[in-house]
Design a protein around this nucleic acid. Structure first.
Lengths: 248, 248
DNA sequence: AAGTGGTCTAGACCACGTA
DNA sequence: ACGTGGTCTAGACCACTTG
């Protein structure tokens, strides 16, 4: 007899605690980069043993939502931290070295969501979007063209100058910009990858011939409760770079 | 002051236990699909508490090396199990449905490792390889061309008839064949993805024009101790399918 | 009813970072 | 010296599967 998995007959305590902590994080009780209370304090607050609390934290750490530092405390994960700035960057040079890109912004504008983007972002078609176009250069060479779109309401008062200042002067990523300026924390993303040919628009931006093969990567980035907040389409010239993935 | 991470000053007990269990698995003490001893028995065997043993098992389960089934026991993971047969398949149809491919084998032969493949497999250049070429069809349409290579010594007495029997009559994958017939357990893999153009060899096999865009996916599959045992290059027609990846 | 994995607790002690 | 996370233990009890 197969058991229905619809309603789990029983919800472990640590899972409930995890949800409570997630809610507190989502409500902004603890800011990105800041320390949350110690395990002992949290255990007292939620009236559970330290072991049970630890198990809740374990899961949040596995999800890259929290970061533990032995001897110091547990912190809200950031996109501005040392090694995590390019957490979502899956491109490496053919030699295998990880390089970090330089952004050149081409355009910032506003537009409306077409059917596909609306569906991906869980919005009604025609919703107002902020549109951002840029080229990523690796070692000075253009490799990626990005077309990035977010619900316009999320990015009040944004300008291309502000973006460039943050990303280039500040050595930040778009995700650290969202986080520090707009209280949007990107927690995960999924990508759909296809092969395509460079058209007359993207070819000159990437310095390739029309008809050159490119990766077309459609990404949706998610925040708390897996809510989609950013859509982007990237075109990647893989003459000198590859996309890597680990399977297990 | 930054601490050198070279030699961890201290190895947790559960980590040592994990290594011992890994060794037992690698030595074939417990076969794929079979139950390993209960937690209580293993705790007794390794002279640790059940909690510590559990933590070791937790990690092996996270690595997809073991599978827990409440009330029944802990089992060695398989490629022949129900939902895990296509664990490494990252292709979905554009509509989003997961489809399972049908293999058509084109060729089985022997050859020598060139510099790149030798490097990827950790072999001396010129080593003897088994070579396998096939096309994967989804809903009857050819979508993937695979060029697959393994150290010849691993696949003693293999034949194309045997492969086809296993994969098609038996509804198995190559990885389940390796596992059941040759005692090679694939545990993980990594892939490098680039965009390319269909050449005169692959185009007719995939039913596309020469010059059509394709994904070129180079995969190395690993067994215990992250030892590489299989190399493959896949060419994927993404007109009706995409490669998906989850980032977090 | 018996056996397995899963949860939860309370407490001791260790390793690490800071002051 | 102190506070933080990390490890380990022993034991009670719960949930699931099988006979």
């Amino acid at each position: 007899m197969q058991k229905e998995t619809a309603t789990p007959s029983f919800l472990p305590l640590y899972e409930q605690i995890k949800q409570l902590i997630l809610r507190a994080l989502s409500d902004g009780e603890w800011q990105p980069g800041a320390a949350i209370p110690s395990e002992i304090e949290l255990a007292r607050r939620y009236q559970v043993s330290q072991g049970t609390l630890r198990k809740a934290l374990d899961e949040l750490v596995m999800d890259n939502i929290l970061v533990r530092r032995q001897g110091k405390g547990t912190f809200v994960a950031t996109h501005t931290d040392d090694g995590t700035t390019y957490r979502f960057l899956r491109l490496m040079s053919l030699g295998g070295e990880q390089e970090y890109p330089h952004s050149e912004f081409i355009e910032f504008s506003r537009g409306k969501a077409d059917a596909q983007i609306a569906k991906r972002l869980g919005l009604p078609p025609g919703s107002a979007l902020a549109i951002l176009r840029r080229v990523l250069k690796f070692s000075g060479e253009p490799v990626v063209y990005d077309d990035i779109r977010l619900p316009a309401a999320l990015l009040k008062g944004i300008s291309i100058a502000l973006i460039e200042e943050h990303v280039n002067a500040h050595k930040g990523t778009l995700y650290s910009l969202y986080e520090t300026q707009y209280q949007i924390r990107i927690l995960s993303a999924h990508e759909r990858i296809r092969a395509t040919l460079a058209n007359e628009f993207v070819a000159p931006l990437l310095g390739v011939q029309i008809g050159a093969p490119l990766l077309a990567i459609e990404r949706v980035a998610l925040t708390y409760q897996n809510q989609p907040v950013e859509w982007r389409m990237s075109y990647v010239n893989t003459e000198r770079h590859y996309y890597f993935d680990e399977l297990n």
